[in-house]
Amino acid sequence: MFQSAILSQSVFRAALPAVTLILLLATIFTLQPRAMSVFGINLMLNLAVPIALATMAQLFIIAINDLDLSIGSFVGLVACIGATWLNDSPLLGVAALAACVLAYACLGALIHIRRLPSIVVTLGMSFVWLGLAVMLLPTPGGASPTWLRQLMSFRAPYVPVPIVASIIIAAAVHYGLMRTSYGTILRGFGGNPQAMRRSGWSMLRATMTMYALAGLFGVLAGLALLGISTSADANIALRYTLLSIAGAILGGCEFVGGRVSPVGTVLGVLTLALAGSALTFLRISPDWQVGAQGAILIVVLALRAAVARKES
């Protein structure tokens, strides 16, 4: 009986993000049956792909018990680089983006070696990324490279592209982090760092890898966002920081202990992205869009806490 109780909790935890999303979708489709079309879904989830990528970046950091408060301004910087250097002289642009990923890895090394609180360091970095972006592009503008614009506006008949893209992102991260041998080692550092060190694995290397992966996915998020919006602005993605934390938590990730779920996280992002549309169909003012995201977060975490308390 004890065992089945514990089992039901883990099943509940895994199913909660999916159930939340299905409930939300059901609400939307009941209120507005016309939304149940490829066109409707494309419209509602237009911005989900960059948010999903940014949230994956956050997930890599959360997996090792850290938190990234700079991902939003980093995505903005990448968009600015994409709209200027990458468009004008692609080589310089690619080099700059590679330097960004490297900077993330170095940040991980600094945080690990000096044992700094990641929140404060990334808070500082959020100023730095934003400052660099403003220097690069003082006023909104620039232009997305054509290939990027075409890529992001690609629409297939009969299949909603954002959903397909989200599935690909979830599958890729799930495979890399959850299924591969080294991914297991990386997650182990979130679960029990002392034990990992005692078995001889390098925590520095793991931390740098995770931060570099976060940088890489931040770059992808910035480029995806640029392709959709076709021009850039330093402030374009500032709210991604908080949104990515909310999405990861909604998707079943935990702040400590290294429990993460890439698939759940993508579901969490889709839920947050759809919250706005649901409000429109409910004829509630769009003022409450952010509030709805907060409310969903509270309700889901309350459910999780209630179940955990009942089991224990």
Partner: peptide, 26 residues
């Protein structure tokens, strides 16, 4: 205990054995 709670039983075994990698390691 020196197990990682977030990993599965099989994954925890892998932590001890560097040889468990590559194809079909799980």
């Amino acid at each position: 205990l020196s197990l990682c709670g977030n990993l599965t039983v099989a994954e925890n075994t892998r932590l001890l054995h560097p040889r468990l990698r590559g194809w079909n390691w799980r």
